[in-house]
Simulated assay, not measured.
Amino acid sequence: MSFAPEQFASANKAAIEAFLTFANTAFASVERLAALNLNTARSTLEDSVATTKALLAVKDVQELAALQSSLARPGVEKAVAYARGVYEIATEAQGQFSKAVEEQVGELNKNIASVLDKAAKSAPAGSDAAVAAVKSAFAAANSAYDSINKAAKQVAEIAEANVAAATDATVKAVGAAPAKTKKAA
């Protein structure tokens, strides 16, 4: 069995397209992350200036305690929002990478199946058992890949749910803390 130059050209074109998909996804994600970091840095600087001005205006310990409790929640909420933003960017990039890999694996599977069918047609008499064994091994490998892929998606979904739950719990805990502080004072 031989491969025609068109097959090599087609394979090279597919590889270049896959590389460009990965590169574009990576650059878009880095660009979004850079914008998030820049906006967060700008917001943090503005908040620091406002906090400094508020601290300079404090006249007694009670005002300082009230100011401190009022500043804690927005800071934690902004940190949680930043973490959510980073997580969202990473999750979307991972999803796009996974989709591209799945497409490549699907195309590879079609090509291998085609090659196996051509090999079976041109195989010498009596090699049916060997061809069937190769096809069976190929089917088993695909089944294993599908199982691993499904398990990985389930793990990602569970992790995403746990991150969301932890984030919500953190925000609620910080929201409850100032109320407890006010009751104690």
Rank of each mutant, 00 (worst) to 15 (best):
P124S: 15
Q154K: 04
A161F: 01
Y87G: 13
F97C: 01
A159I: 04
V131C: 02
E160C: 00
K135S: 11
S147D: 04
K150D: 07
A83F: 10
V105I: 13
E92L: 12
D117F: 11
E103I: 04
A144F: 00
V155Y: 12
A90S: 15
A132E: 15
N162G: 05
A156N: 10
V155N: 12
A139T: 14
A141W: 05
Y145H: 13
F138C: 01
S127M: 11
Q104K: 05
G95A: 09
V115G: 07
V155T: 13
K118N: 14
K135P: 04
A140D: 13
G106F: 05
V86A: 14
A152C: 06
Y87V: 03
A140V: 03
S122W: 10
V115F: 10
V105Q: 12
L108R: 01
A133R: 14
K118S: 11
A144N: 05
S98L: 01
G85F: 07
A140C: 01
S127I: 04
G106R: 09
V101R: 09
L108I: 00
A144I: 04
A119W: 02
S143P: 00
A139Q: 13
N162S: 11
A120T: 14
Q94G: 07
Y87P: 03
Q154E: 09
A83N: 12
Q94M: 10
F138H: 12
G85P: 03
A93F: 10
L116R: 02
V101I: 08
A159V: 09
A151E: 01
A123H: 08
A139H: 12
P124I: 02
I148R: 06
V155G: 09
A93G: 10
E103R: 05
E157P: 05
A90I: 12
Q104A: 08
A151T: 02
G85Y: 01
A93S: 14
L116A: 01
N109W: 00
S122C: 13
V115W: 10
I148W: 00
F97S: 02
Q96M: 06
S147I: 10
S122E: 15
N142E: 15
E107H: 08
Q94E: 07
N149Y: 05
A144Q: 07
A129S: 14
V86P: 03
T91A: 12
I148C: 01
A100V: 03
A133D: 14
E103A: 11
G126L: 08
F97I: 13
G95W: 02
A119E: 07
S136H: 09
L116T: 02
I89N: 15
Q154G: 09
A152Q: 11
A119S: 13
Q96Y: 01
A152G: 06
V115M: 13
A129Y: 08
K99G: 03
N162E: 13
K150F: 09
A113Q: 02
L116M: 02
